[in-house]
Simulated scan of single mutants.
Amino acid sequence: MVRGAFPKGCRLCVCGAKLVVFVTGVCNRGCWYCPVSPRKKGSDVSFANERPIRSERDLVKEAELMDAEGASLTGGDPLTRLERAVNIIRTLKDEFGDDFHIHLYAPAESVREGAIEELDGVGLDELRVHPSPDSTVNRRAAEVLEDSGMDLGFEMPAIPGEENWILEVAKLADEYGFDFLNVNELEFTESNAEELRRRRFERVDDDLSDAVAGSERTALTALSEVANDVGITLHYCPSEVKDAVQFRKRIKRMAKNVARDHEEIDEEGLIVKGIFEVISGDPEDLADVLINILEVPEEWVYVDGSRVETKPFVVDELADVLSDLEEASRCEIRAWIIREYPTWDRTVVERWPVRG
């Protein structure tokens, strides 16, 4: 559901064009529904998509690999590491120009004048404030932001039964001239599942979804009720958008830039390739046999540690003669076809053996 002009950060997000920068896992808010993974939650670590940020080059490289048109800075609370967040924004703007759209998420409790002035000064385009259950905190944040040059919005989860919280935040955003209110479908994650169950929330009746039952109804009921009373954009974002739309489109953008000559890209944007796993022997000897005896093009053969990678059809075609290949290369071999994400960590999605 969208009523009004779709926020630019959202437009780029659903196209898979936003680099996701996890500034830090540190946050003083302690929301019981926080979806951040246990690996990152509370830890002072930084990532650009799945890539750990150890230098400015890591940040820029990841943006280049996905042809990013913007970035979203998230956490944790990026404002607990304000200098880091400012440096990230400055680096991206210097590298990609002023049109590279950057938005940042921050809890209302962290919104303070000095921080906002720094973010404004370095060129932050859009600030998304996570409202507090305390209306006084939200009003104080709105007052600080009233004269900001950035696009402003509140962004919050749709907690079943909390329609009044959404209504209150929508009216406050309208009162202070904010541009939008985003309401996200609440979902079960590894880090919040126990607390959600303790509060007797259930999953929707769908094996493919982790959404919380009643969350969508709460969002749509509240936004419909307040729609005629405010002039700001009202936007409801279902949980499926993150995985089925945003993530899928992002990996498709990345795949065409990271796939090597021997790797193929399937319709979902996953990398598909053949693997000869060398159990004993020298992988270079196997590569030599493939190139010089079996005449596999050299650019289709890639040695990675104990693995020799190649086109998937090459492994398929050699499945019936693996024993001959082992004898010629003096290697013990296992053969696989794998599908993996084109991300920095190259997470394997599917692997199946090829036997002769």
Rank of each mutant, 00 (worst) to 15 (best):
E146G: 01
V137P: 09
D94G: 01
G97Y: 10
L124F: 04
D94C: 02
R112T: 10
S132V: 06
K93T: 00
R140L: 00
V129Q: 12
E117P: 00
N87W: 08
F96V: 12
A108F: 04
L104K: 11
A141H: 01
R90N: 07
E146D: 12
E117H: 03
I116D: 04
E126I: 00
H101G: 03
D99E: 15
D99F: 07
E143V: 02
F96P: 00
P107K: 14
N87T: 07
V86D: 13
H130C: 12
G97Q: 06
R84A: 04
E126M: 06
Y105T: 02
A108S: 15
E117I: 11
G97N: 07
A142V: 04
L124M: 10
A106M: 07
E117V: 12
N138S: 03
L92W: 05
Y105N: 03
R112P: 07
A142Q: 12
D147E: 15
E109I: 06
E109K: 14
G123A: 09
I89L: 13
S110H: 00
V86R: 09
L127E: 05
V129T: 08
I89R: 12
A142G: 09
F96A: 08
A85S: 15
E109L: 05
T91G: 12
E143T: 03
V122C: 03
P131Y: 02
L104C: 15
F96I: 14
S135N: 06
R90Q: 10
E109T: 14
F96L: 12
D134V: 09
H101N: 05
I102Q: 05
A115Q: 00
V86K: 13
V144C: 14
H130S: 15
V111Y: 12
R128E: 05
F100A: 06
A141K: 02
A106F: 04
L92C: 08
K93H: 06
L127F: 01
E143C: 00
R139C: 00
T136S: 14
E126N: 03
Y105M: 01
A141G: 06
I116F: 02
N87R: 15
V144L: 11
A141L: 11
H130I: 11
E113M: 03
D134Y: 15
G123N: 12
S132G: 09
L124V: 11
A115T: 02
E146P: 02
L145Y: 08
E143Q: 11
K93V: 01
R140Q: 03
V86S: 08
A141S: 15
L127N: 09
R128M: 10
H103E: 13
R112H: 10
N87K: 15
A108Y: 07
A106H: 05
E95Q: 13
G114H: 07
S135G: 01
K93W: 04
T136Q: 05
V122W: 08
R90K: 15
D125P: 08
Y105R: 06
L104Q: 09
D147A: 10
P107N: 14
G114A: 03
D99C: 02
P107W: 11
H130G: 14
L104H: 13
V137Q: 13
N138T: 04
V86P: 12
E126T: 00
R90V: 01
I102E: 02
R140T: 00
H101K: 04
D147F: 07
S132R: 02
D94K: 13
A106N: 08
D125Q: 06
R90E: 07
I88M: 14
I102C: 09
D125A: 11
L119E: 02
L127K: 05
